[in-house]
Write a protein that binds this DNA or RNA. Structure first.
Lengths: 206, 206
DNA sequence: TGCAAGATACCTACCGGTTGGTATGATAGC
DNA sequence: GCTATCATACCAACCGGTAGGTATCTTGCA
């Protein structure tokens, strides 16, 4: 999704297929689901790049090429918008973990390995949903309970292969490494995490 | 520090020594350092209890029993106030770790043990500077770099006793456990961390 | 198939309230 | 009287949210 601001307002909105939605909002083709998704994407991007505080309805609407009124048509209030963003992020994380699970050899520590690998893999991606300012996002009460529910659900689902203090420590260490990563000041180069990753994976073997 | 709101304004400010600063701001005794500290305390409390977004100059000033004008006399702008709060918090953490260091048996993993113990001890305290909404606080760029500098400094200082992947994993796991703790939704009871703490401490032995 | 009727999608204009910040005035202590 | 220490009054910008209009799309019916 590319946004080209032409003049004072009326962002020219071009879908990733290259099909223009016409510059003036007046005679633009109505594509509600496209606009809705653009709103969600822009809100997520704003939150991750500049913190949750930067997510104002005006900013989101402008970034998506619509007005605040248009935004309010898709979401009844700010809270609903934020929660929709969180839901999307959790779904995305869910997919990533599942992909990692399929690649795993199976057996003892299956989920823990997939979890560790996903957390380490994501940090490579610049625009990962878990980079930079994710902390601010996680501080939100709604996303807190969402995250907790997700983790509990996963632990129950993989109880057979991923119980025990040893594996829990590995997962916690992965969380800690992730925290250290997002806490790293911008000017500080990323240290070599490959060794740590290998060590943690080794610890998952019975 | 107790605040008693009497009437529409003019919070009666009573120091913890019991000495009243007189209810009317007009003829209150001038105690600039007391006021300054009250501003810092109130700002910290607001940030930790309701997130950084809740720290407005008006709110801080009112809570401390002064007006916004009074606040601006002590701090040139909001950023200066926030940074002063962060500095205070890091100093406090520094003291806690040092206390824990003195109690330690010494030798291999000294700092790591003190670090783990401090992180686990603090969560017991309800009003700990590291509870609840600390994430939001840590997301601040200034505090990010501050935290990183602190950790680097400590690692250099304890290089002799606390190098190596094993101890790093222990520290990371402690961070992860702390993260899980602050991420716990309010309605969720705290699980038993004593076992985890013991296990981590054991892992610090060479 | 054509068209009226209504649902959907969006925009413009505005509201009360809060924000960080400034300019100036008053008071207390030395 | 001078200066540090506040209070008072005010500002422009922005906040989330509402009201009401207009354009476009869809659908039921002749």
């Amino acid at each position: 999704m590319i946004l080209i601001f032409s003049g004072r307002r009326g962002a020219k909105l071009i879908s990733n297929t290259g099909h223009a939605l016409v510059d003036s909002p007046r005679n633009r083709k109505k594509q509600p689901d496209v606009v809705r998704q653009a709103l969600l994407d822009c809100a997520r991007k704003l939150a991750l790049e500049h913190g949750l505080a930067a997510v104002s309805l005006q900013a989101v609407a402008s970034a998506a090429g619509v007005t605040k009124g248009g935004l309010f048509h898709h979401f009844p209030n700010k809270q609903a918008l934020i929660e929709a963003v969180f839901d999307g992020m959790m779904e995305s994380l869910d997919r990533e973990i599942d992909e990692e699970l399929e690649k795993d050899k199976g057996g003892h520590g299956t989920f823990t390995r997939a979890y560790v690998r996903t957390l380490f893999a994501d940090r490579a991606l610049a625009n990962s949903p878990w980079s930079a300012q994710t902390m601010t996002v996680l501080a939100n009460p709604y996303s807190k309970s969402l995250w907790h529910r997700w983790m509990n659900d996963r632990l129950v689902r993989h109880a057979e292969t991923d119980m025990g203090m040893r594996l829990e420590i590995v997962r916690l260490a992965a969380d800690g490494a992730w925290l250290a990563h997002v806490l790293r000041p911008d000017d500080h180069a990323a240290s070599d995490d490959a060794v740590l990753l290998r060590e943690l994976i080794e610890l998952t073997d019975g």
